[in-house]
Simulated assay, not measured.
Amino acid sequence: MSILSLLIAAVAPGVALLSYFYLKDRYDPEPISFVLKLFFFGVLLVFPVMVLQRTLVQGLGDHPFVFSFLTSSLPEEFFKWFIVYFIIYKHTNFDEPYDGIVYAVAVSLGFATLENVLYAFLNDYDFTALLMRAFLPVSGHAMFGVMMGYHFGRAKFSSDRTSRHLAMAFWLPFFWHGVFDYTLFVSKNYWVWFMIPLMTFLWLRSLLKVKRANAKSPLRMATREERVKI
Rank of each mutant, 00 (worst) to 15 (best):
S2H: 13
L7T: 08
A9S: 14
V15Y: 06
A16M: 09
F21Q: 01
D25T: 09
R26H: 05
P29T: 11
E30T: 08
E30P: 02
F34S: 14
L36S: 07
F40G: 08
F40M: 10
L45D: 07
L45W: 03
V46W: 10
F47E: 02
V49S: 00
L56Y: 13
V57Q: 11
Q58L: 14
L60F: 15
G61H: 08
F65T: 10
V66C: 04
L70W: 10
S72K: 01
P75E: 00
P75K: 01
F82E: 08
F82D: 11
Y85C: 07
Y85E: 11
I87Y: 12
I88P: 02
Y89N: 05
N93H: 10
D95H: 03
Y98N: 02
D99P: 07
A104P: 03
V105C: 09
V107F: 03
V107M: 06
L114N: 01
V117C: 06
L122D: 10
N123V: 00
D124M: 08
Y125A: 13
D126I: 12
M132V: 13
V138Y: 02
H141N: 05
H141F: 07
M143P: 00
F144K: 02
V146C: 03
M147W: 14
M148C: 12
G153E: 05
R161Q: 13
T162Y: 05
F170A: 08
F174I: 04
G178K: 01
V179E: 05
F180C: 07
L184E: 03
F185W: 05
V186A: 03
S187C: 03
N189S: 15
P197F: 06
L198R: 00
M199R: 00
L202F: 04
W203L: 10
L204H: 06
R205G: 10
S206R: 03
S206K: 06
V210F: 14
K211V: 05
R212S: 09
A213Q: 07
A215M: 08
S217R: 09
S217I: 13
P218T: 07
L219P: 00
M221C: 02
A222R: 06
A222E: 14
T223S: 15
E225G: 00
E225M: 14
E226G: 00
V228P: 02
K229I: 14
